[in-house]
Design a protein around this nucleic acid. Structure first.
Lengths: 247, 247
DNA sequence: CCGCGTCGGATTGTCGACAATCGCCGTGCG
DNA sequence: CGCACGGCGATTGTCGACAATCCGACGCGG
């Protein structure tokens, strides 16, 4: 039963299993710890401490930190050190704009290039999502990764290595980080599923323009949801620039 | 006289001057060497050799190599080593598709957000380009960086840190690498300038939809130029998958 | 009482050396 | 003659230690 495990988790497991080097394993461990929230945004990452904690030297650890910096999950400054990336509404909205552009293109390319079998698999994935939603309706844990699974597949179907890498390696990890900290998509689950179905329908008709348009509207809708949440929070808490609730 | 020096060169110089650490300096040096063609695509980058050549240890060198890998300028494999990124038509076309998406969005955001002064500066830049083109018409060296200067400014005017970083730090360095190795934009210079002017005109009217559309068509046109070159080469040389002419 | 300079501890950046792994080349066998 | 196997050199990955830099506390002067 592959459907019981989300694609994102499978990719995670693969990345950790294929860690032929200590630095790769550390990178995967730290990435998961950050996305999972085990390391909170803004936390200082002290090299000797982490090295002792993982039982390795500082060399591979620094390599892992640098890879996390490239993925924008940690921020580093020379002679100052590394911190888990700070979260803010502005950055999340920036991220949505970037996703709207790149995923729109991925959807266009996928529409032009993917096989009928891939479209069948996409529809099967959405059927599975719908079934899960019937069981545990509302904001189930499933939605967290299930939505990303759909976008993962679109990205990979684009047959564009650069676009796929941008989405799957860079932007999606950031999305997951924000999702764990900030669930601003309340009640959007059924609507998102319908939008996914419309996208696949356009792809099935090989209407690349329309498929890209639908994908962009899908992501722009999610972004507007976040923008509305930001306005609500600003009105509620006066001038609160950050979105850290805890501590 | 700031106009005599392209924005790209200024950014280069800044990056090297602000190198407070050995790893940063090495990164800038190697990046320039790769873009300049001093290190040819596919060249093996042996750590002890480079370290001795630059008079540093392998530690900072490895860090620089990793940063180059994140920028997709070198490819690394565990226990195998690093090589300068291989060039191919397929990757270049992938790059154009990614640029079309991200730069289109950058142009849209810039249209919505930039000031009138920034638009004035953009038009002044295009005037300078036109003047230079009158003097040294045809395919001047100027065009190489001048075109990117325009796109640099659009990216920065988007006020989106992620989009700006994607374009200026990641994709543009790759474009420069391909431009040095593969000048497939013969005779496009006057046309590109006209398209740039049309983009700024749409931005001046604050027509974000049209500005994005024009930017996307501008980049798509350049991409089709490359695709035509690929077809020509395929017809000429039978089945030549790579675009390395030398060696 | 507050601001500023200085000092000390801690952390990061860099270095050289050791161990693990890969590619190559010669050899032997089918 | 072709191919698989094993040894060997070279390269990469990892480690611990040293030096440079930054952050905080303390003391001093205004």
């Amino acid at each position: 039963m592959e459907a019981s495990r989300t694609l994102a988790e499978v990719l995670e497991r693969d990345a950790r299993a294929a860690a032929v080097t200590v630095a790769e394993r550390l990178f995967a461990e730290l990435r998961d710890a950050i996305v999972r929230g085990d390391l909170a945004p803004g936390d200082k990452l002290v090299e000797p401490e982490l090295a002792r904690q993982f039982g390795v030297s500082r060399g591979p650890l620094r390599e892992a930190l640098q890879r996390l910096e490239a993925r924008r999950l940690v921020e580093r400054a020379p002679h100052v050190g590394a911190r888990v990336a700070a979260l803010s509404f502005e950055r999340l909205i920036d991220l949505y704009h970037a996703r709207e552009a790149v995923e729109g293109m991925a959807c266009r390319l996928a529409t032009e290039r993917c096989s009928e079998g891939e479209l069948d698999a996409l529809e099967a994935l959405l059927d599975a999502h719908a079934a899960l939603e019937d069981v545990r309706d509302g904001t189930g844990y499933f939605q967290k990764e299930g939505d990303l699974d759909f976008h993962y597949r679109i990205a990979r179907a684009s047959r564009n290595a650069l676009v796929t890498q941008l989405l799957c390696d860079d932007l999606y990890q950031l999305m997951r980080l924000y999702r764990y900290k900030f669930s601003a998509y309340r009640g959007r689950t059924p609507r998102a599923l319908a939008e996914h179905r419309a996208i696949v329908a356009a792809m099935r008709e090989r209407d690349a323009d329309f498929a890209e348009l639908l994908m962009r509207r899908h992501i722009a809708g999610a972004r507007r949801n976040v923008e509305a949440a930001r306005r609500r929070q600003r009105k509620a808490a006066g001038t609160e620039p950050s979105m850290h609730q805890e501590e």
